[in-house]
Amino acid sequence: MTDTQPQSHPRGDDGRRLTPKERMTNLGIDVVLFTFGLLMILPLVLLVANAFKTPQEMLSWPPTIIPSNPTLDNFSAVLAETPLLTWIFNSLAFALCSAVAILITSTIAGYVLAKFPSKTMGAIFAVILATAIVPFEVYMIPLYFAAQSLGILNSLWGLLLGYLVMSFGIFLIRQNVIQTIPDELLEAARIDGAGEIWIFIRIVLPLLRGALGALFVLAFFQAWTAFAWPLIVATTSSSYTIEVGLALFQTGFTVDLGRLSAASAIVLVPSVVLFLILRKNFVQGMASTGLKE
């Protein structure tokens, strides 16, 4: 890499040739970034590697990076001993439903707040913005009692209760509607006799595709990594999400690190793959949280 790399992009942004010194600097930066990137994912790589280790190797010193006798025992043991697949399914169902719910609530509210301005709507928007900064952990306890009185603890509905709306999502969609959908377009459709619902579904939604994709990924991963809320709402093994299931599993008695790592790897791999697929959407979604401040 060191010998051939510099020739592949010898020109700077402005098209001028880079001096040798600049090329060296770029190479240095590449090395730094590459090393740092590897270090960032190293813990996860180690975890996956541990999943393939035998109990003896797990306890050996110094620790090995690559398993010397890779085994699948940890995977089969953990799948046999814990309802891991149920937990993954619960997490997936929770994350998907939450993302859909947030998409629906945010799109409707964002669109209405953007395109039907009035004093009332202004006030509603102000309230939504104000609650956006209140951390979930602050009102989690009263919400728990709300779920209890609805009788939806230990169920998907109970998990969802905390994740039906997202203040930031409403905000995001509202900004996007203002920026990408001109009033004239809506007026023209109305003059053509289109109903409000038709306009919303046929004109507004398609134009918001990018923002909706971003919000979907954002909401999905928010629910996927939720911890404190599922921990109190789900108290039976069959209703745990993967985060809760694993956290409780690791306090177990006969649990060894190899099995824990196997369980973790089973969870990590799909979420990393999913992220890689949705990366573009996600980056866009996350980035827009910063831009509009």
Partner: peptide
């Protein structure tokens, strides 16, 4: 019979949550 055995502190917490809400084992 399904057995759900977890660490004591977590167990006591789920009992507190479960019994008061009628969702316990």
């Amino acid at each position: 019979v399904s057995v759900e055995a977890i660490a004591l502190r977590e167990h006591e917490k789920r009992v507190a949550l479960g019994i008061t809400s009628g969702e316990s084992a």
